[in-house]
């Protein structure tokens, strides 16, 4: 039913990068995430799947504290990044987000040049000493974002002038320019056509060499294609979490089976 050959062969022993314990999220009175426990591994692509409103994006945004910007949002439980609680009062969310990068659903390049889009993160974090080093970071990031060849001659052109797929790869390149350890992707292909989607998926597979990638997706084919681990969310609960091949071929929970066969959603 789903192509899981690639992901199975890629499975290997890795260590835990993010560990969530008893995580609860409330939006005002709404209990959005109910007691989620999950171990996200390093150098692995983890897919969050589930019907709309199941809390997968909410949980993803907990991992770099983007929910802090929402006043009514409250998070309890522990989320450990390399064993350290990211919700500890001593942790600065700014520093955390430099470590845990994020790519959004809709490509959102800054209305600046392609160069400035990539250079923004390194600049504010002071990662480059001098222009030459910054140029190097920009080129490296664009190459890893698989967009260098398309834009190398027009780095001064505005990032907003690129096509949708190029913009999203630019945003991925921008996110990895700050050398994060984890890359969160919130439905990164939902605004893209199939060709651009294929390019981004290929890129995600390459990024797995260096990062822990967590991707929220509505496309089960995509989850099967790019991920090694899959988590299925339903109504705020983490229903099932395991190796992608197993989730898609032999799910344990009847709800998971119903969802992947298209009976609930």
């Amino acid at each position: 039913m789903y192509d899981t050959a690639k992901t199975e062969s890629a499975l290997e022993q890795t260590e835990t990068k993010i560990s969530a314990r008893n995580v609860q999220v409330y939006y005002g009175d709404t209990h959005a995430i109910k007691d989620v426990n999950v171990e996200i591994e390093d150098k692995t692509v983890t897919a969050f799947i589930g019907p709309s409103g199941c809390g997968k994006s909410t949980f993803l945004r907990c991992l770099n504290r983007m929910n802090d910007t929402i006043d009514i949002c409250r998070v309890t439980g522990d989320i450990l990044l390399d064993g350290e609680d990211i919700y500890d009062p001593k942790v600065d969310p700014v520093q955390l987000r430099a470590k845990v990068g994020m790519v959004f659903q809709k490509p959102n390049p800054f209305p600046k040049s392609i160069y400035d889009n990539i250079a923004y993160g390194p600049r504010i974090h002071g990662l480059a000493r001098g222009k030459a080093e910054l140029d190097e970071i920009v080129e490296k990031s664009l190459r890893r974002g698989a967009i260098w060849d398309e834009v190398k001659d027009r780095l001064d052109a505005p990032g907003t002038g690129l096509s949708g797929g190029q913009q999203q790869r630019l945003c991925i390149a921008r996110a990895i320019a700050t050398e994060p350890e984890v890359l969160l992707m919130d439905e990164p292909c939902s605004a893209l056509d199939p060709i651009a989607t294929a390019q981004v998926e290929e890129l995600i597979d390459e990024l797995r060499q260096s990062y822990s990638v967590v991707i929220v997706t509505h496309s089960m084919q995509q989850a099967a294609r790019v991920s090694q681990k899959t988590a299925f969310f339903h109504l705020g609960n983490l229903v099932e979490y395991g190796e992608t091949g197993q989730i898609f071929t032999n799910p344990e929970d009847p709800r998971t089976e119903s969802y992947i066969t298209g009976r609930i959603g």
């Binding site: 790519v103 993160g121 921008r174």
Partner: peptide, 9 residues
């Protein structure tokens, strides 16, 4: 735009 910048730290 805010999210993009916040997400970069």
């Amino acid at each position: 735009i805010r999210e993009a910048a916040l997400g970069l730290g």
